[in-house]
Each structure stands twice: as C-alpha cells, then as structure tokens.
Design a protein around this nucleic acid. Structure first.
Lengths: 337, 337
DNA sequence: CTGAAAGCGCTTACAG
DNA sequence: CTGAAAGCGCTTACAG
C-alpha cells in the first residue's frame, strides 16, 4: 500500500487537502473543533507523514543544512574536535526540525560533490583542511553557490559574501598556557608543531612565541609529522640529543604532548619536576590513558551549536549580524606543569 | 538575483525546459550537438544547479539516507566505532550522489524526531543504545515508517519487515583472542565487562566464557561503569585484592583494557610476563599513548560501507537479498599477551 | 469555518 | 530532434 498523502487523508476525513494541511502544520485558527479531531484521527489512523519534498518545493525551504568536511582522509570524522563540533551542530539543528547533511569531501573532488553541483540545502557549514591557498580557493567555490555559510576554524576573509566565521580562541588559550608555564621560570622551552600548518596551529605558535619573547625565555621550535607517533617521538628525541633536556615542552596539540610524555618517561625524566609539558585540545580518551595532561579544552561542541544558531537566524533574518565569532578556550590545569 | 531554474536556462538557451532537463541529466540521445552545447553554455553561464526538491517530488526519490543514532549522550559521535561506521557509510553514499542525514536522538525522544514524524529520506540506518527491550521497541517504531532499513550492531529479529542487520563478528573476534590467551596456559582469567549490556558485549562474553570453559580454565567475571576510568580501576583493584593477580585480564573493550594496564603498572606487575591483557575494538589513539595492546580491530568503516551498499541495492532491487551480514573482526597481535 | 485553485521545480511519456 | 503538458505533494492567498 502506497504512502498516504494529503489527498488520502482528506478523502478519509471528508475534508479538503487545504484543511488537512492546516491541521498538520498546527494552524489552529479557523478550524472547528470537530474537523480538527476528525482530521487528527485520520492522520493517525493512516499513519500520514508529510512529504518534505512537497513542502520544500512549495516553500523553497528544505530544512536541511549541509556540513562539508574537506579532508584528504576517508576517516574524516576521526578527530575528536570534528566529532564534537558535528555533534553540537547536529543536535542544535535536530532540536529545531532541521536535518544535517554530512559530507566528507577530498580536497580535489570538491567541484564534483553533489553539494556543489546541486541545490540541496538551505545553508552550508564548512570545515577545511589543506594549505591556506587551497582552503581559500574552496571557500570561494562554495561561496558562489549563494547559500548562507558558516566556516569553522579559518580566518575571516574578504570577498566571501553571506558568510560567517566561527573560531576558537587559539591565541587566548596558548597565552594562558604560556602563563602557567612561565610561572615556573623556565630557561629553555621546546615548542613542537605539526609540519602541516593549520591556521589554528599558526595562532597558537604565534601566541607562545610572543609570550616567551616578552618573558625573555629562549624558545626552540621543531616540526614533525603528527600523523605518525614514531615520527613525533623521533623529532623530540633528536632535539633532546642535540640540545639537552628543555625545562618545558609545549606540544601544539595533545597527540604531540602525549608522545612527549612517553619519551620523557623512557628517559627517566620526571614530569613536571624536570620537564613541564602542555598540550592543546583535550579529548576524553586521555582520562583512560591515566594521563593528567595540562592542556586547553576546545569549545568544539559549542562552536557547532553556535554555527547552527547563526545559520538558522540568518535564514530567518536575511543576513548575518557579525562577520566572525571567537569562542573562549578553557584551561585544563592537569599535573604536567 | 534569484536562483536560476529550468525555465531561466531554457529561455537563455532558446529551448524548452524538457530539453534542458535532458541535458542536465546526461540524456544524450535525441539531442543535437548544437543544442547540447548551447544548453551546457547557458547552464554554466547562469550557474544553474538543479533543485533536488523538484526532482525529488517528481521522482518520489530524494537521494537521502537517514542515519539515526539513538543515544542518551549529546556527544553521540564520541565513540570511534560510531565515527568510523558513519564515515564509511557517508563516503559510500556521497560517491553515489546520495546524502547522509545525520541525527542523534535521545532514547525517549525518538517519537518526536522529524525523521519519524515526516517523510524525509529514502532509507534509514539505525544504531541503538539502551536495553534490549528499548532497542527492540525503537526498532519497531522505525520499521512502521515503511522505509527500507539497515540496523547496525543488533541481533536480527522477526516481525521487522524490510530490514537488514549488519554486525561485526564479536564472537569470532573473542574466540580468536581467547585462543591467543589460552596458548599461555593460564590458570586464572579475569573478564571485565561494562555494567550496561550491549549485545556486542554479550556475544564477546559468551565466546570468552565458552572458550575458557572448554579449556578448563577458571574465569571470573566482574562488571564496572566503563564511562568512568576511576570506576574501572576500582573494580579491577578490588578484585585483585580479594583474589590475587590473575594470569590474564580480558577487557570487554579497549577502554577497560587500558585502565587495567595502568593498574598493573602501578602494582609493578609485568605485562605480559605476569599478567596478559586483551582489549576489543582498537582505535588509533592507542598508538599515541605508546600502548601496544593485544586487541581486536572492528570493521566499523566496512560495516558503514556495506550498510550503504545494501540500502542502495535495496532501493534499486525492491528487497534485501539477505536478512543479516556479519563482518570479520581482525586481531591486532600487540605485545600484551 | 472551509475549499478551489495556482504554482513551487522538476521528469517523462508522448506527439509531432 | 524538440517541446507541450501532466503531475509528483504540498502551502497559501483568496473567495465564499
């Protein structure tokens, strides 16, 4: 038996489809009590569920937001930052009857994505990886689609209309961690960053660098392939061989910090007595590993919620009120500083 | 300027909307070369993108698959098993022009979800948490929607039409781990499971229990709140105080195994010389923690892909070919057995 | 309080 | 090779 539609229900209840439509949409004025009840009974008896394509076509609204995650890896959801952000966004939208269309796209395949080629969503969220140039290029491409857009974790740029940027305060978090570290009056600081430059990493690095500089502390920066734990360990141990144990190791993120912690343990260096260690963007699995890392907690979930809120308000109001939002990053005190 | 539609393009190219529709949909027979080029030029010049609501209404297909994750937690995406499965599903669908509508739902709010109340998707994927009874109830509810369904990680049940179950071989994985462990000829085995009974945990437990039984090895089972690392540690240490160090600790999952590893380290017990340890459902962050846990690797990504494949084939073919699929679980040898 | 009618953007069987 | 026309399921301004 085919799915019931407005006509089926109308026939069953002995009213017009207009009346059924009103009842289904909760329009309660200008409907008699008797009609209301009869229609409601038919809806329930037939198991009628409004078809969103019909409504969408009529209203030119689909109640769907697209989330494009541009990432070379097929496991584009692996990062806890991403999953928390997506969860916040999805929950915010779901609570308001909006769906989230999730789409991981390889950087080179953006143009052939159905999100780009077809008109499927009311608004778009963007999270991009890759070089600044590639990110800018893809952001531009998406912006030609004339959908309202929210871009996460990227610097606000001109020439991208109807778009709002939502970031976490990486600089602020790094500054706060630097302050904690500097209270120990270190002589030497080792900063370990990934060899791929994310804008967030750039902001953290700059904040660390400035903080160390104004405190007159010598800071050394090294890079490593953060996707490979062995490569991180190798980079750190190399540097220690060359220059000796630093007073502080600042990891650009938790992955790096955790590897540093293990390297230090193997050397028999005490943390934080001999060497203090910090990370960035805490995630819960640290707890299971028995680590009590001093780090910064990302407001990823809240960023997702905010992105959803901004997009829905934009859809209501016709324009974004602000061009950029920056959410505070909390410090997780831990026991490694 | 409003978004171009078929009429805009048709007027611009000087043809009918039927012709534009054919060109846009790649119908190449019965179209002259000259017309084809003219239409393509207009499409590109005007930046035309077909509106899916229109097509969806006409074809009664939306090219959208819903993924409902029923979970009490707002961070319903936190588990690596879930994210890998969703990534596999999403990628499979995206590559075929289908969108994935992601929806985390609290167990009590299933009925008010728009995925239930409205007709939005062509097919449904389900991942459920909670008691067997609650899961069965929600599966039933979704099955009344008369969408083809794929249910992940739940036992196939009767009375649920047009539904296919996709599972990983938890029993097989557990059996293989048990075999590894039994090669050490242990005298006593401690099995640590979560106090909430997932069907997967149940299957693993049964396989462990049977394996130990037929080998004549004494096995003790204890439960703990696996969402709290301290609670896991407490449960394990309690048991060790009471009954002494076992020869093997089998964690029902990696979280538990990792906590066990740390407890043993604090006691100065050597792994695997004094105590062997196994987990289940490996995830990559173990590598960063410097652990080399003996565990089983879940085919979560492949399960997602398979679910997408089954659903798309079902949409083509009219029915599922098989009622249930079970994907093999790989063993990660590690260094803790 | 109720319903007839127009129309959202599209596809497709059919006539020419 | 091309296009007129019907109709997918719905909402809404309007007439009664």
């Amino acid at each position: 038996m085919a799915k019931p539609n407005l006509h089926t229900v109308a026939a069953h209840a002995g009213v017009s489809i207009a009346t059924v439509s009103k009842v289904v949409n909760g329009v309660r004025y200008g409907i008699s009590e008797a009609t209301l009840e009869r229609v409601l009974a038919s809806v329930s008896e037939l198991g009628y569920r409004p078809n969103r394509s019909g409504r969408g076509l009529r209203t030119l609204r689909r109640s769907i937001i697209g989330m494009a995650i541009v990432d070379p890896s097929p496991t584009f959801l692996a990062d806890p930052f991403t999953t928390n952000l997506v969860a916040g966004l999805s929950n915010y939208l779901s609570d308001r009857g909006f769906g989230l269309l999730l789409h991981g796209i390889k950087p080179k395949q953006v143009e052939s994505s159905f999100l780009v080629k077809e008109n499927v969503v009311d608004g778009l969220c963007l999270m991009l990886s890759g070089s600044a140039q590639l990110r800018r290029q893809n952001t531009k491409l998406f912006s030609t689609l004339s959908h309202p857009m929210v871009v996460f974790q990227d610097r606000a740029a001109d020439g991208i209309p109807d778009t709002c940027f939502v970031n976490q305060d990486d600089a602020g978090g790094a500054k706060a961690l630097a302050k904690l570290v500097l209270a120990r009056q270190p002589k030497s600081v080792l900063i370990v960053i990934p060899d791929i430059f994310w804008p967030a990493i750039e902001l953290r690095l700059e904040a660390y660098w400035q903080s160390m500089k104004s405190a007159g502390v010598a800071a050394k920066i090294i890079r490593c392939d953060e996707s490979d734990p062995a490569a991180i360990a190798h980079a750190i141990e190399d540097q220690i061989e060359k220059a000796g144990l630093p007073d502080v190791i600042i990891g650009a993120n938790d992955k790096i910090a955790i590897v540093a912690l293990h390297s230090l343990e193997e050397r028999g260096a005490r943390v934080p007595e001999d060497v203090a260690v910090t990370g960035f963007n805490a995630f819960a699995s640290n707890d299971y590993a028995g680590l009590d890392l001093t780090t910064a907690r990302s407001p990823a979930y809240e960023m997702g919620e905010l992105g959803g809120k901004l997009l829905l308000e934009r859809l209501e109001g016709g324009e974004f009120e602000q061009r950029e939002y920056t959410l505070p990053v909390g410090i997780v005190p831990g026991a490694t500083v």
